[in-house]
């Protein structure tokens, strides 16, 4: 679904020192990315580039996997069979997206086990958005519309990120993502055109998900020390604030079109800028969620660990089965 590039606890600065790198190789590398060439797994790359990518791609993968939980919460309670089939298909897609991304990160020399372990120990981060609860069915609409909408906004430029395997994973993901946002918006349309209670439910979901969705783009540019280096290396192609602005400009008319109100008293079209001015984001809340204090952060972590532990017998059984088959083949 999405990642904000968050630093983990042990990371001291923006990365490893570039002074340790071979200056000639570094210059050639920088010239290649500046010319919009792609870097592939066997190409030389600075260690800081590799580390940044492992962190960003694995956080992105974790976000997909943890992102299955808030929506999975409503599969059994979807209001009808059509919605249930759609939600199942969407959650299944998120699992697939996580796998594409784990595989892309593995091309950089990290292992699946290391990444999973980092998620379970709390060392690895994932998008703050998934630490909010899904309280009503309308939340499933709001997630598809807003959260997947924000993810698409972020992921479209990532299709041209400088690391080949990450870019190719993003192409595949973006193609599949397009139905996610539309199914969410459709849920909101139906509720907004329904009974007064249904409309209230849609508005309540928008009220709760709007600000956390804006936070998904990460800290403001002046508080995002890694952005400059990442943009320079074409890992990111646009800054957090640029993407956030585009999201607001795109989404506000979509809310108005179905009679919902964006919960921001400061929201106003700015004719001169050709963009919406909007209110201050509560960054204290954002940083608290990053620190692991999100409303359901502990539940999410426990759910992932429990899924891993409860699945242990399946992994063991598969290994035993494969062994047995190999022995039979050898005996034939």
């Amino acid at each position: 679904m999405y990642t904000t590039e968050l630093k983990d606890k042990n990371q001291k600065s923006a990365g490893l020192s570039l002074a340790d790198e071979d200056p000639e190789k570094l210059a050639a590398f920088e010239a290649r990315v500046a010319a919009d060439d792609f870097i592939e797994p066997k190409d030389w790359m600075p260690e800081a580039y590799r580390k940044t990518l492992v962190r960003q791609i694995s956080q992105h993968a974790h976000s997909e996997i943890v992102g299955m939980l808030p929506e999975g919460n409503w599969i059994t309670r979807a209001p009808n069979l059509r919605r249930k089939a759609i939600l199942l298909a969407k959650v299944q897609d998120e699992g697939g997206h996580g796998l594409y991304l784990y595989a892309a990160a593995e091309t950089l020399g990290t292992s699946r086990e290391e990444m999973i372990e980092a998620l379970h120990s709390g060392k690895a981060k994932y998008s703050t958005i998934f630490n909010y609860p899904t309280l009503t069915w309308a939340d499933i609409g709001a997630i598809g519309w807003l959260v997947d909408g924000a993810a698409i906004m972020n992921q479209v430029p990532l299709q041209r990120t400088s690391y080949g395997p990450y870019a190719r994973a993003m192409v595949r993901i973006c193609k599949e993502e397009s139905f996610h946002q539309r199914q969410g918006y459709e849920i909101m349309c139906v509720l907004a055109a329904g009974t007064p209670e249904q409309k209230r439910m849609a508005q309540d979901a928008l009220d709760r998900w709007w600000w956390p969705s804006l936070m998904m783009f990460g800290p403001p540019d002046d508080k995002s020390p890694n952005t400059a280096q990442s943009v320079r290396w074409r890992i990111k192609r646009e800054t957090n604030d640029e993407l956030r602005q585009r999201f607001v400009d795109t989404t506000v008319p979509q809310a108005e079109a179905i009679g919902l109100r964006v919960p921001d008293a400061a929201l106003k079209w700015n004719e001169a800028r050709g963009a919406y001015d909007f209110g201050e984001i509560d960054w204290e809340e954002f940083y608290a969620v990053v620190r692991g204090e999100g409303p359901v952060a502990k539940d999410r972590n426990h759910a992932r660990i429990r899924a891993w532990e409860d699945g242990a017998w399946v992994r063991e059984a598969a290994a035993v089965h494969a062994n047995k088959r190999a022995m039979r083949m050898a005996a034939e």
């Binding site: 059509r82 139905f179 539309r182 918006y185 349309c189």
Partner: peptide, 10 residues
């Protein structure tokens, strides 16, 4: 329903 064209948007 896995395709975006399945959904009705105003």
């Amino acid at each position: 329903y896995r395709h975006p064209t399945f959904y009705t948007i105003p």
